[in-house]
Amino acid sequence: MKTLHLLRHAKSSWDDPLLADRDRPLNRRGQRDAPRMGQALSTRLDPMAVSCSPARRARLTLEGLCQGWPELANCAHDIQESLYTFDYRDLLDWLSCVPGSSDSLFLVGHNPAFTDLANVLTGTPVLDNLPTAGYLRLELSTDGWTDLPGSGVLSERLFPRELR
């Protein structure tokens, strides 16, 4: 059994049209939602390592998560160039290279890749769109990170709009 935690980056700013996509920061809502999601997730999960897209908005989301979940800041986090993708097939390729000894992964990245990945892993459409700062936990009936499509069950979801 494997567990995959997916968190889409928080809402990003489009204020500067000259910024490259990977350089966009969080907007005010994103700056608010990331720590709130960190606080909410701290009551549901043990702190763990996080693999994060190198996009600025994803890295700032991880920083915000750690603000709301201080124990998470003490864990090792890594920036993975391969997670800067919008295609779920790239994520499947990345996952297939993860050692089988890793039972749980937490990723911070992008849509539509995360929405599509969740739907492919469960073998059925479980959501139309993972909102910004939205979280999913998928339980995968497999011993390794290969042959994943259709092996999963969506066991939890949490979206910022559900927080008080």
Score class of each variant (00 low, 15 high):
M1F: 04
T3C: 13
L4Q: 06
L6M: 08
L7G: 03
L7T: 06
A10T: 04
A10E: 04
K11F: 11
S12Y: 08
S13L: 07
W14H: 06
W14K: 08
D16L: 08
P17Y: 07
P17G: 07
L18N: 13
L19Q: 09
A20W: 12
R22I: 12
P25I: 07
P25A: 08
L26H: 06
R28H: 15
R29L: 10
R29I: 09
Q31S: 03
Q31K: 13
D33M: 06
R36Y: 06
M37T: 02
G38F: 01
Q39M: 06
Q39Y: 10
Q39R: 11
T43N: 13
P47V: 05
S51P: 11
C52P: 09
S53L: 00
R57V: 09
L60P: 06
E63Q: 15
E63I: 12
G64P: 05
L65A: 05
G68F: 00
N74Q: 15
D78Q: 15
Q80K: 05
Q80L: 04
E81M: 14
E81I: 12
F86N: 05
F86K: 10
D87Y: 04
D87P: 06
D87V: 00
D87I: 02
Y88T: 00
Y88L: 06
Y88K: 04
C97M: 13
P99K: 03
G100K: 01
S102Q: 14
S102H: 13
D103P: 12
S104E: 15
V108E: 05
G109F: 07
G109T: 03
H110M: 02
N111H: 00
N111I: 00
A113K: 01
A113Y: 03
F114M: 11
F114L: 05
T115K: 03
D116G: 11
D116Q: 09
D116A: 02
A118V: 07
A118F: 02
G123I: 05
G123C: 04
G123T: 07
T124W: 10
P125N: 15
P125I: 12
P125M: 15
L127S: 09
L127W: 06
D128Y: 08
N129R: 13
P131T: 08
T132D: 01
R137F: 14
L138M: 05
S141N: 11
T142I: 04
W145P: 01
D147A: 14
P149N: 07
G150W: 02
G152W: 07
V153M: 07
S155T: 09
S155C: 10
E156K: 08
R157D: 11
R157G: 13
P160T: 05
R161E: 14
R161T: 13
E162C: 12
L163C: 07
R164T: 15
